[in-house]
């Protein structure tokens, strides 16, 4: 009935991609500018790898469920 509609998974991908980019960008910036009050286990740089993981997952969902894809 609504086969032409944009999939929910496309919106999920958009959300993961946007958040991943923001978190990864901030994590990379912090590598050069360490915070004055770092979080516990800051040395593991969770923002970098978690942000990258979200970004890649988001990219996967966007490409797989992009509007117009058969």
């Amino acid at each position: 009935m609504h086969g032409h509609a944009i999939s929910i998974w496309f919106f999920v991908g958009l959300s993961l991609l946007g958040n991943g980019a923001l978190i990864l960008g901030n994590g990379l910036w912090e590598l050069g500018h360490p915070p004055a009050h770092p979080v516990v286990l800051y040395n593991l740089h969770a923002s970098v790898w978690w942000g990258a993981a979200l970004l890649l997952l988001g990219l996967f969902y966007i490409l797989r469920h992009r509007p117009g894809k058969a």
Binding site: N19, I23, N26, G27, E30, P35, V40, S47, W50
Partner: peptide
């Protein structure tokens, strides 16, 4: 969240 999550990650947790 505040213990382990820096800027960006904290925002995602609160979101």
């Amino acid at each position: 969240l505040a213990r382990y999550c820096g800027p960006g990650l904290l925002g995602l947790g609160i979101t």
